[in-house]
C-alpha cells in the first residue's frame, strides 16, 4: 500500500504585502509552505523506512502546472504526484478543498495512510486534514509529533500533549496531521533535483472531482488595524475588575449587540 501526502500551493507568506489592512498577494510567489514541507519529509521518512511508495497529492488552480513546483516536490522524496487542477479550487476554503481531496485520494486508491501538515502557510486553518478523514470515514488524528513505523495494519505514532507523550497505535487506513516540528524539511540534493523531472506526474480528470462543494465563502481577508495599547490599569475585587473591563469594552464599541 502507498502513503499519500497532501500539500497546498499558496502565496508565499513572506511576499504578502499588507496595506490599509488589506492583504495583497499579487506579487507573491506561489510555493508550498514550510509546514507542508515538513509533512512531506515526515511521510518520506516513513515511506523509506517501510519500503512504501509516497505519492504527493494536491488540489488547486492552474498554478499547479508550474514545473518548478512539481520538480521541487518530487525532489523531496515523493515518487510521483497526483494533482487536481481546477480554478474553482484556487484559495478554496477547507471544506471545498477536503471534498476535492477526498475524491482525488479515492480515485488514486491503494493507500492506507494519508499524511497532512499542521496547516497551510497562508490561512493556517488546520481543518483540511481533519475534514478529509471525516469525509473518507477514516480515523483521523492531528497533532502527531512522531511517525515511528507501520506494523501490519497499525501505524505507530506519538502525540505530545501538555501532560506527556501519548503513544498511539492507529488502525489503518487512517489520516494523520503532523506537527510543524515533527522533523526538519529536507534539503534536496542536486541528484534528487535532476531526477525529479523524470518522475511521473498524474493530472486527475477534474471532471470526476467535485470542485465546488459549498462551504463558507471567503469574501475578504483583512488584517485588524493595529492600535495603540490603552495602558489602563484596573483595580478592585475580581468582580469589580470584571465590571470595569466589560464597561470599558462597551465604551470602546467592542461589544457587538451591546450590553
Amino acid at each position: 500500500m502507498d502513503i499519500l501526502v497532501c500539500f497546498k500551493l499558496s502565496p508565499d507568506s513572506k511576499d504578502i504585502l499588507v496595506s490599509n489592512g488589506a492583504i495583497n498577494t499579487d506579487r507573491a510567489e506561489w510555493n508550498v509552505g514550510e509546514y507542508d514541507l515538513v509533512a512531506v519529509e515526515a511521510a518520506a521518512q516513513l515511506a523509506a523506512a517501510t519500503g512504501r511508495k509516497l505519492i504527493g497529492v494536491s488540489v488547486g488552480g492552474s498554478q499547479l502546472a508550474n514545473t518548478r513546483f512539481r520538480k521541487n516536490m518530487l525532489s523531496r522524496g515523493c515518487d510521483s504526484l497526483s494533482l487536481v487542477m481546477n480554478d474553482a479550487l484556487v484559495q478554496a476554503d477547507t471544506h471545498k478543498t477536503a471534498v476535492a481531496l477526498a475524491a482525488a485520494v479515492t480515485e488514486i486508491g491503494n493507500y492506507d495512510l494519508i499524511v497532512c501538515g499542521e496547516g497551510s502557510q497562508d490561512l493556517y486553518f488546520r481543518q483540511t486534514g481533519i475534514q478529509l478523514g471525516e469525509l473518507l470515514g477514516l480515523p483521523v488524528i492531528n497533532g502527531i509529533s512522531a511517525l515511528n513505523g507501520i506494523e501490519g495494519s497499525v501505524l505507530l505514532a506519538e502525540r505530545s500533549t501538555d501532560s506527556g507523550i501519548e503513544v498511539l497505535e492507529i488502525p489503518l487506513p487512517a489520516v494523520v496531521c503532523v506537527t510543524s516540528d515533527i522533523c526538519q524539511s529536507r534539503i534536496p540534493k542536486m541528484k534528487d533535483i535532476l531526477q525529479a523531472g523524470r518522475k511521473p506526474v498524474k493530472e486527475l480528470d477534474a471532471a470526476g472531482i467535485p470542485c465546488d462543494a459549498t462551504g463558507s465563502e471567503i469574501i475578504k481577508v483583512a488584517l485588524p488595524k493595529s492600535v495603540q495599547r490603552k495602558a489602563v490599569n484596573f483595580s478592585g475585587t475580581p468582580e469589580e475588575i470584571a465590571d470595569q473591563i466589560v464597561a470599558m469594552l462597551a465604551k470602546e464599541g467592542l461589544m457587538p449587540g451591546g450590553m
Binding site: K71, N72, I187, P188, K189, I193, L194, A196, G197
Partner: peptide, 8 residues
C-alpha cells in the same frame, strides 16, 4: 533545476 538547487 538551477532555481531549486539555489533554494536548496
Amino acid at each position: 533545476e538551477q532555481q531549486l538547487l539555489a533554494e536548496s
